[in-house]
């Protein structure tokens, strides 16, 4: 309870059907669904994780990959602290799109945004190496040039998913307790909440009837 809480606004970008929503679903509820409907607009989810002594709260905006929702993305990455650019390791086209997203983020998003490049669906490649269409080296090279974190994940098996978010959480400058106190109303922390367990809150003995 006394751990300082940091909120991280995180946005997922990438071509349609690369598995953005599945990554989030795996991270938030450790679940996977085989036939997911395409996302409409942008979905919002939150998840708390403990990193070292801190609690990090991820506010995740999962944007739709379809082209017609392209105009929505800037609204969400503009003041995001972190971005996940996702591509599909079996689809070269999605990697090209990922390059575009990285470029756009560097131009439009805030200067110290932390970007993670994520190659999804490695479970397909693990089964049959011939399915791989985007070389790991190529992606690593891009990550190195642009200063990105790089992961290859599988939302289906859950491989590397938590590592992605942990990696981002570790790179975000965590707030100290003194900064936390003057945080804006937007970052409601657990310190400010009413603790129902503490005896000071209860007016009378618990369970007693007033009559």
């Amino acid at each position: 309870m006394s751990k300082p809480v940091t909120s991280i606004k995180l946005v997922l970008l990438g071509e349609a059907a690369v598995g953005k929503s599945s990554i989030v679903l795996r991270f938030v509820s450790d679940d996977f669904s085989e036939n997911k409907e395409p996302t409409i607009g942008a979905a919002f989810l939150t998840q708390r994780v403990n990193i070292n002594d801190h609690t990090v709260k991820f506010e995740i905006w999962d944007t739709a990959g379809q082209e017609r929702f392209a105009s929505l993305a800037p609204m969400y990455y503009r003041n995001a602290q972190a971005a996940l650019v996702v591509y599909d390791v079996t689809k070269p086209q999605s990697f090209i799109k990922a390059r575009h997203w990285v470029k756009e983020l560097h131009e439009q998003a805030s200067k110290n945004i932390i970007i993670a490049l994520v190659g999804n669906k490695v479970d397909i490649v693990d089964e049959n190496e011939e399915e791989r269409k985007v070389a790991r080296e190529e992606a690593e090279k891009l990550a190195e040039e642009e200063g990105l974190l790089f992961f290859e994940t599988s939302a289906k098996t859950g491989a590397n998913i938590n590592e992605v978010f942990m990696g981002i959480g570790e790179k975000i400058p965590l707030k100290g307790p003194e900064e936390e106190a003057q945080g804006s109303g937007l970052n409601v922390t657990d310190d400010q909440r009413v603790n129902l367990d503490s005896p000071g809150n209860a007016d009378g003995p618990a369970g007693a009837c007033s009559c």
Partner: peptide
């Protein structure tokens, strides 16, 4: 088209 997308999103929100 943009207006439509935004309206959709606002409804979802």
């Amino acid at each position: 088209e943009e207006l439509m997308v935004y309206k959709e999103q606002s409804f979802m929100l």
